[in-house]
Write a protein that binds this DNA or RNA. Sequence first.
DNA 1: TTAGGGTTAG
Length: 666
Amino acid sequence: MQGRQPAASPSTALHAAILKCGSEVNIQHNALLVMYTKCGHVYSALRVFREINEKDYISWNSMLSCYVQNSLYAEAIKFIAEMFQGGFQPDNACIVSLCSAVGHLGWLINGREVHAYAIKKLLDTDTQVGNTLMDMYMKCQYTEYSTHVFERMRIKDHISWTTIITCYARSSQHFEALEKFREARKEGIKVDPMMIGSIIEACSGLKTSLLAKQLHSFAIRNDLLDLVLKNRILDIYGQCGEVYHSLRMFETVEEKDIVTWTSMINCYANSGLLNEAVALFAEMQNTDIQPDSVALVSILGAVADLSSLAKGKEVHGFLIRRNFLMEGATVSSLVDMYSGCGSMSNALKVFNGAKCKDVVLWTAMINAAGMHGYGKQAIDLFKRMVETGVAPDHVSFLALLYACSHSKLVDEGKCYLDMMETMYRLEPWQEHYACVVDLLGRSGKTEDAYEFIKSMPLEPKSVVWCALLGACRIHKTHELAMVAADKLLELEPDNPGNYVLVSNIFAEMGKWSNAKEVKAKISERGLRKDPACSWIEIGNNVHTFTARDHTHRDAERIHLKLAEITEKLRKEGGYIEDTRFVLHDVSEEEKVDVLHRHSERLAIAFGLISTHPGTPLRITKNLRVCGDCHEFTKLASKLFEREIVVRDANRFHHFRAGSCSCGDFW
DNA sequence: TTAGGGTTAG
C-alpha cells in the first residue's frame, strides 16, 4: 500500500509472548490480530480471528481493519456480511474502516448505503465517521456530498478541514479551497503538513507559483516540511512551470526517495527538458534508490517525447532484467514509447505479448496505428477490442477519430462519432468534434466542416476553430479562414501558435501588413513562440538543430553536405524549391535560402554523414513539416536509398523510395 | 478495534 511503512517482520516470539501473558483469551487474540495486520500477514490474522471463540467488537473491527490496511478493500466489504451473520452490527470504528474501503474502490452506491446506515444508527455525528464519509465521497468524485457532510458536522477537527480543502482543490474549486483554508486559520485549527499539502494542490490548478511560494515559506517557518510535503511542493513548482524552484527543492531534500526523483524527472519532462529528464534518471541509478514502475512509466514518457529509440530500448531492457510485470501503465507506456520513437514493429510486439489488454493498452495501440498512418489497422484494432469485451471510452474514440483523420477516412470518422454517442452513450468532447472538423476540412469539405461546427451541441472552443483554420489554409478558403481566425484569437488570445497560424494565412494571401500586424501581437502580449527545431539520435546522443543552426560542432560539414544533397536532388530528382512555403516578405532568392536551412534538413544532412549507407534515419520535429521539406525528404529517401522516418507535431511520415506513408495528406 | 498525504499510462 502506498505511503505505508514497510511491513514489519512477524515475530513468532512475540506471538508466543502474547499468548503466554495472563490476559483474557480474546484480548490475546486481538493483540495478535493487530500484530499480523501491521506485518501485512492477512492470512495469519484471519487464522487467529477464526480461532477466537468469543469474538467481541474489537475482534470483528480488527479483522475488518486488517483487510483495509492491507488494501484488500473488496474483501473488507464482503466481510461485513459475515459480521452481520455473526450477530454484530457495525459501530463507528466499523463504519470508518468501511468508508475507507468503499472510497478506495470508488463504489458510490455502497458508500451511500453505508452513509444511510450511519444516519439511521445516529453514527454520522461522530467526527471520525464524518471525516471518512467526506473522504469516501471525494474518492467517488461526489464532492458535493462531501460538502454536505462537512456542513452537517457538529465538531470539526483539523482532519475535517484538510479533507474539505482537498475536496475543493481536487474538484477544481480552487478559490473555495483557499477560502476554506482561510476559515480554518481563523478558527484557530491546527495546521499540519497534510493541510499544507491539501491547499498547495489548489496552486497547480490556479497555476500560481506565488501562492505555492507563500505556502512553502509558511511550512518552513512553522517547521512543517516533511518528506511527503517537500515532494509535493517540488511537484507543484514543476506544474507551475517553475523548474528552477523545483530543482532547488530537489537539491535541498537530503533524504530523497523514489517520489522525489520521479517528481523531478516529471518536472523536467513536462517542461520539455527531455535530455535533463533522461540524465536525471541515469543519475538516480548511481544511488541506492531503485526505480519503481511509476519512475519507469515517467521516463518512458520522456523517452517517447524525445523519440530516442536507443534509450527506450535501454529502459525496456531494464524492465525485463528486473522482472517488472508487463501490465497496466508499464505496458501501455512501452507501446506508446515505441510508437513515439517511430518503431511500430516493436510497439506491436509489446502489445501482442501483453496477456491482459485493458482499454488503455488497446487505445495506445490504436493511437500508434493512427499516428503512423495505418487508419484501417486502427479501425481493425478497435473492432478487436470491442469483440474481446473491452468497452471503448472517450480516449479510445479520440484515438480512433485521429486515426481516421490521418488516413482520410471521412465516412468512417463520421460513423464512429455517431457510434460513440448512440451506442456507447459517450458525450463527445471538444476534441472529438475537432477531429471531425479536421477530417471534413482537410479532405476539402471546408463548408461542410463549418456547417458541422454550427450544428454542434456545445459552444465550439479554440481547438475546433483551429482545426477549421488549418483546413482552410490548405484549401485556400480564405474567407472562411478569417471567420475561424477571429474566433480562435478571441477564445485563446494567449497562445502564440495561434498568431503564427493566422499570420501565415495572411502571408499566403499576400497581405503582408496584416501578417506583420498579427505577428507583432505575440511580443505585444509578452508571449514567446517556440522556435522550430528538429533532432536526430545518433548512437547514444540526441543532436538538436534549429533553422540556420551553426552551433553544432560539425556545422561546417553539415552545411556542406546539405548543399551537396540539394544540388543532387535538383539535378537528379528534379527538385525545385516551392517558395510558397516561405511566409516572410523577402526576395525570392532569400526565400530559397530560408527553405534550404530548415531544421529537419540539417538533421537529414547530419544523419547521412553520421550513419552507414542504408541505415534508416529517424528525425523528430517540434512543429509540422512544411510542404517543401516534405517533397525534399521524399526525394532524399529515393536518391540516397534511405528510409527516413519523420515525426512532426501531428503524426509520423515514413519516407521510402520517393514517397511518404501519409500519401501527401497531413 | 476506527479516518486524511506525494510521483505514473492511452
